[in-house]
């Protein structure tokens, strides 16, 4: 018995194309960023140059901007996904903390 049928390859090819397209989409955005924008509850609470070293506390999350890279130092949320995201520096990259509704974007 054949494990994969004809339609399966069609599915795999479609997924592969979608994957390549999404990477292309990503790379078209991945220029070195210039500004750091921090939003909390959809309101902009911080908007400054990425080259300015700073530490910003939203009350729930502490974001560090140092030597052109941005990372979440600590957060009060349970899953700590935002802290584990690590450093971001390119345009379009972001760190998201869903539980605290904090989003750090580079523009």
């Amino acid at each position: 018995m054949k494990v994969l049928k004809k339609g399966d390859f069609l599915v795999i090819v479609t997924v592969a194309v979608a994957f390549v397209l999404s990477i292309a989409l990503l790379f078209s955005f991945s220029k070195q960023g210039s500004r750091v924008v921090i939003k909390q509850n959809n309101k902009i609470v911080y908007n400054q140059s990425i080259n300015k070293n700073n530490e910003f506390d939203t009350g729930t999350n502490v974001i560090v901007i140092k030597n052109g890279v941005v990372f979440m130092k600590n957060a009060t949320c349970k899953n700590q996904i935002c802290v584990k995201t690590g450093e971001i520096s390119k345009k379009g990259e972001s760190i998201v903390c869903l539980p605290n509704k904090v989003i750090v974007e580079i523009k």
């Binding site: 997924v15 989409l25 990503l26 379009g92 972001s94 509704k101 974007e105």
Partner: peptide
């Protein structure tokens, strides 16, 4: 819709891991 366009960054990772 909930957090904005920043999360689209995950798209390639999610497609690959989904597969």
């Amino acid at each position: 819709f909930i957090v904005g366009f920043g999360v689209l960054y995950y798209l390639p990772v999610l497609i690959l891991l989904g597969a």
